[in-house]
Design a protein around this nucleic acid. Sequence first.
DNA 1: AACGTTACCGATAACGTTTCCGAAAAGAGT
DNA 2: ACTCTTTTCGGAAACGTTATCGGTAACGTT
Lengths: 349, 349
Amino acid sequence: MQTVTIKDIARACGVSVSTVSRAMNGHQDINRETREQILRVIEESGYVPNNSARNLKRLESRAVALLVKGMDNTFFQDLMDVIEKEIHRRKYACILQRVEESEDEVALALELVKEKRLQGIIFLGGKFDHPEESLERLNVPFILSTSECRNAFDPCSGGKVSVDNEKESFRMTEYLCSLGHRKIAILTAAPNDDSIGRLRFDGYRRALQAYGISWEPDLAVWMKSGLDKYNFASGYRMTKELLERNREFTALYATSDTLAMGACRALFEAGIRVPKDCSVAGFDGLETGKYYVPSLTTLAQPVGEIGRATVSQLFRRIEKREISGQLTFEGKLLIRESTAPLKAERSEV
Amino acid sequence: MQTVTIKDIARACGVSVSTVSRAMNGHQDINRETREQILRVIEESGYVPNNSARNLKRLESRAVALLVKGMDNTFFQDLMDVIEKEIHRRKYACILQRVEESEDEVALALELVKEKRLQGIIFLGGKFDHPEESLERLNVPFILSTSECRNAFDPCSGGKVSVDNEKESFRMTEYLCSLGHRKIAILTAAPNDDSIGRLRFDGYRRALQAYGISWEPDLAVWMKSGLDKYNFASGYRMTKELLERNREFTALYATSDTLAMGACRALFEAGIRVPKDCSVAGFDGLETGKYYVPSLTTLAQPVGEIGRATVSQLFRRIEKREISGQLTFEGKLLIRESTAPLKAERSEV
DNA sequence: AACGTTACCGATAACGTTTCCGAAAAGAGT
DNA sequence: ACTCTTTTCGGAAACGTTATCGGTAACGTT
């Protein structure tokens, strides 16, 4: 176990440890030949500097935390992929840590930062309350990626990268309205426990209003807390629940693609054809929606851009102490097979 | 930044740092009252011990690495979810690190272990060559999870947790044969660059042989290296390629669920109905396959069991130095809508 | 020849923690 | 009152690295 240290290298080269340290860290005041010899010996011996010792001396640990609420969420998994890639590219370590629904992400982050001297934090998903501003006091950069904070107008001292969920949700609903739909059901998060879901719901309501449609509570299915998540099973279950209400609807807006596909399955089993009898729209732009039958109309979030911006914002703060506020990306409305214009001759029940 | 150290606590309590250390680490030779007072002060001050300093003294870092080859693979993402959960449960840190297709995972692991004093490594996906046995020399436990090593009969000094890919693939192919299919196309990895894919292909061929069917190279579509992966797009592309060959087939075995769904989409676009005109089978048992239309027949890998076993094996080695070799789990053949018996009256082309 | 400059390098003190060793105090046995 | 344990604690040496500070030698410059 970790037998070879800087002392061994120093001894092997007949120099002091200081010189070895200088050689490794690319300092200037060292003879070219000496450096090359040292580096050669290091290479041969397979010596790797001990990170703990180095972190203890330096202020930096070259590590950031990725705190994710909802690791089983497909969209977040895709985002994690690009975020890890970007962190890796910068030769930083990525400490992955789930945060459970019940946990306080800020407390967790605080502890991580202190005990491991982390240099930055990325919050993925969920909501971010910061009652004590404790993270700010620690003065460690953090970014909310596809994650909301208490007050949208005061994006705390951390950065924020996401789409404008309210606006994009408005666009999607507006599109459904423009197809002639008036009875648009929605599958969405409970308004109290998830702010992203809340924003999407707000956009939906605003669009209905803009089209002079009064919203019907019976057409909204809320996630049951502790039971439902943004996944296939919940889309399926919630749609079954909707169907049991026996209310007519000609379009179904599911606030994630996974929900939407679960919904399609439930509709299929009920003998309701998509999009002939009912249009279905999702949100996120998951790869899988493109290959679904029917392919899914969705509002695609630019995962690559969001992920890259998240990391680059974080590193701008870490390395250059440069602060940039909220960064909002445009979504893209992908119109595919699962939505269609309302047929005029449709028989009313 | 990290202002409060053990010294501050010691001063605040009027004791020495040794005593504070003892209080934190639950040693016995300390007065009950003193300990309680120290713990109280620690709690109030928000002090968290510096991990780097601690690691430097102790041998252990309470951290393991999760090295994954193919982070965009849905099945691996699901596995990562449960693996991280299990690591988290044991209060260890999880260092997530992607390994690119071109990189040498062992070299990477070696460096990580040395520089961060990691206590264990999980390899997820890909293949594992260990020409120098360098990891063994370091004497740090590692587990191959759903990942193959050079020689299946000599599972190196690390543990191995997976399904028997050859056997399960045999079962799936056998099932298709039992439905009466004789012309069974396959979407699979190039035999040289991926050993899991190779095992699944071997199982396919053995089953054909058992049913007295000679295998046709024209019915096998190989992944193009650098282009194809286990994802939707490749399933789609490879099926298009298959269709262009104009060879008849009544069943299509895709060696992952994502490939299978991409295939279904391509077949749909070609006007081929699943399962009426062609049966389609996948592998993995992804959640999404259950909600696909038609729902996907697949060979489900027990993700939960695999993930939990991976971590528990690793910790058995870390904590108890207890070695257990290869662990193989049973897959489960899930027969759903995408496969059907071959119709006898089917017109030959 | 004396001095300043430069290039290179070594000794050493940190960084924050744990652990070993021994000391002081307190009780227990004679 | 004396030793002998036991309990509780502090001092100090590590762990492996980096950074500061100063020193030596070689080389010009006057």
